[in-house]
Design a protein around this nucleic acid. Structure first.
Lengths: 239, 239
DNA sequence: GGTTCATTGATTGCATGCAATTTTTTGTTA
DNA sequence: TAACAAAAAATTGCATGCAATCAATGAACC
């Protein structure tokens, strides 16, 4: 056993950088680190009790995920997305989840369909009595169930990665009046279509559903973040 | 000015690691580095005239792209894909390009449609007189044109990244007898559908087209690589 | 002769240090 | 007082070195 001084709360499994990546990704996704916040290599090294080298590697991983933006010789900041980029990402997520829903309608087995139906029926209670956070959790569970039903792990990974990038900008999505009940109605027809095996129909419905969410969320963020202070055109966009 | 000994052919723009990433990615995509090849940090540092630190960072980027697999404390190898993973990736690409083709059918402007039609008509000559490589180039151009017509940069990036991961396993795809002419026929109906604005139709056609390609390619690779020597289920699955 | 364990060798992973670029501060001038 | 310029301070990017871990070889034992 080596006696490293205080190697951060080394989560038993993965390597040090993986652990830090998860930690920082969580901070960004959950909103504890707001978009635009500068991430200083030295203070991060201090916070996690490691040197700057693994922190550098960590930043590389986060940049590959699109969670931070790396500016040459100017450090990294939590990614800020322009209205255009946000809309693009929502469209990508919309198409990805539409494809997954279509596959789920074709491939879900009997048991998976039963679990899906049960979750959706339980959600009626959440709709009446639960909090917004409760509904948000149900929402996530539903989409996860659909992902698994599609049995297409690569598409699922792409969808989850895209969802993660959007998370910092989505948190207020259900705060808008009537959004929850409207969302439930959209889910309702989607679940019905999946259970009926209507592949093309569910793809169309899922696209509509997420485009609605995307438009509202993008507008909401645009309202609350117009200054565009760091007016740097995201260096890492379009190949 | 520092007199670095031989800082590799520093491509004027991006940083050193970006340059090396592109270089190695090219080697992998083009097949100069075959799947399963071990990438030694020291020899790479020597080859590019830099120290091991930027090479490490380079490996991180390549792993994030899915081009290499990183085994903890055991170095990195050029990614080898199981039959299942290959099929999954092909399905993802199929769905991504289907979505892009659908959007292209809806969004291409008049000029873009004209360019598309012209390229496709010229391809008739390639079909008759050109080499397999010529046809492969035309194939890439066609898909690129469709990508641009979709005007969805995030989806486009995902599709191109997926295409890149598959590239090392696709190179023999057109070597199969009759594959070229069959491919052209499929392209023909796809182009017609786009020009006609038949969004749902082109999505279905593109899915079929790429699933055909995928099945054939996966089987081909499976024939030539059954040993499955490094039977490690991707432990450090990168997002 | 085959199997198990220990030692050697090589490689990875991280810490530290130094040069270069960037940002901020301060001083000078119109 | 505002604006410009120059120097200082801080930060990034890379090189190098060292400890920990893993594959490989050889010796001892069954």
């Amino acid at each position: 056993m080596t006696q490293t001084p205080l190697p951060y709360e080394r989560a038993g499994k993965g390597s040090v950088v993986d652990s830090i990546v998860q930690n920082l990704a969580d901070d960004i996704v959950s909103g504890r680190l707001m978009p635009g916040t500068k991430l200083d290599a030295r203070s991060m090294a201090e916070r996690f009790g490691v040197s700057r080298t693994p922190i550098r590697e960590t930043f590389g991983h986060l940049a590959a995920m699109g969670l931070v933006t790396h500016r040459p010789n100017r450090g990294v900041i939590v990614a800020t997305l322009s209205f255009q980029a946000l809309t693009d990402l929502y469209e990508a997520m919309s198409e990805l989840e539409a494809a997954l829903a279509r596959l789920a309608a074709l491939r879900m087995n009997k048991q998976q369909r039963e679990v899906l139906l049960q979750l959706h029926q339980e959600s009626l209670d959440v709709l009446r009595d639960g909090t917004v956070d409760d509904y948000s959790r149900y929402n996530h569970e539903l989409h996860t169930l659909i992902f698994e039903g599609a049995q297409s792990s690569q598409l699922q990974q792409l969808a989850e990665a895209t969802r993660m990038r959007l998370a910092p900008f989505r948190r207020a999505q259900f705060r808008m009046p009537n959004r929850v009940s409207k969302s439930w109605e959209e889910h309702d027809v989607i679940v019905r279509a999946i259970l009926a095996g209507d592949a093309d129909g569910v793809a169309r419905l899922m696209r509509q559903h997420l485009q609605t969410v995307g438009t509202m969320s993008a507008e909401f963020v645009a309202e609350n973040q117009p200054p565009e202070r760091g007016s740097d055109t995201g260096s890492s966009h379009e190949s």
